[in-house]
Nucleic acid binder design. Structure first.
Lengths: 167, 167
DNA sequence: AGAATAACCAACTATTTTAGTCAATTATTA
DNA sequence: TAATAATTGACTAAAATAGTTGGTTATTCT
């Protein structure tokens, strides 16, 4: 299966977007700063999310990304499928031709497992996630924490801003 | 998470072992032939399974591997954990220090998912798997199929036997 | 009009994991 | 003593992961 940090980053970024979208489009550099993911990596992920129709983009100052649908209608599984391609656990990608054009011994087991995971992740929407108390607390910390940890001017911009971009 | 072909091969091989263990130890070369996995790769996997105490080995002619415990007591999750190390889906391996020593936004979500998968795979024993009709059918096919596909002497030994081993 | 902002795009890269191979040794049995 | 089969260790090709680098294009603010 594919459940790597790629999918986790994507879900985290989308959740950050939902939490901050009341003030218009959310820029990737803001998400990068808050969630400590590299901006260029986010760009790749959001390119896929946009192609899948999950988000819409606005260019220029004040621009950023916004959800194409209500947070209630976006499930975690949609996000993971958009960036990770598949959630399938079989060797044959479900085709059941794992061995001489027939099923391998454990084909059904991996198929069942895939369905389990699929159903679990399909049952959780961004709206539900954003409403959780534990997540609200962490988001509040992230929104107010930068000043606390990095006193005034010395924020390690390397982590969140583009470096070495020439004019 | 780690759910790769490594874990799938291991479960398939262990299931093959259970199906054929009534006639004493099962050799890796037999499993390699039946399940079409390379012998050297199986050796690596069974070294881990032995270290974890899931199987016992018998050397010499007629030797092979046998289960250390009743098939009822070996869950699929045990096998995957033995070869894949962990089934954890969080970035911080469950330590909840994913971001500045505190939880990242989605930590709880991945934790819940890990638990789901864990429970599912813990609920399936080798005995239960081996008793399934679909698996019995496939095993029967595998036990009788070699003669049908590779007439008499011309079995492609490359796939299942060691090649180039000098004295 | 010009500077800043921010999305968009393509190519490249270091590191890790996967899925093995290759070569040899040790133990056991016929 | 020959064959069988586990055991060990080092190596490797290919793919995936997690980015980086260097730009271009569109929009808005001054």
């Amino acid at each position: 299966m594919k459940l790597s940090t790629k999918g986790r980053y994507a879900v985290t970024a989308m959740l950050d977007l939902v939490i901050h979208m009341d003030e218009g489009p959310v820029s990737l550099s803001d998400i990068a700063e808050r969630q400590h993911v590299s901006l260029s990596y986010l760009e790749q992920l959001f390119a896929k999310l946009r192609r899948r129709g999950l988000v819409a983009s606005t260019r220029g100052p004040g621009g950023g990304y916004s959800l194409n649908d209500a947070p209630e209608n976006v499930a975690v599984v949609d996000i993971i499928l958009a960036v990770d391609e598949n959630i399938d656990n079989t060797n044959c990608s479900g085709a059941a031709n794992c061995q001489h054009d027939e099923q391998c011994l454990t084909h059904d087991l991996w198929q069942d497992l895939s369905n389990q995971i699929q159903e679990f992740l399909a049952g959780i929407s961004l709206a539900e996630l954003a409403s959780r108390g534990s997540i609200k607390r962490i988001a509040a910390r992230q929104d107010g924490v930068e000043q606390d940890i990095f006193p005034v001017t010395e924020m390690p911009s390397v982590m969140s801003k583009r470096v070495g971009v020439s004019k």
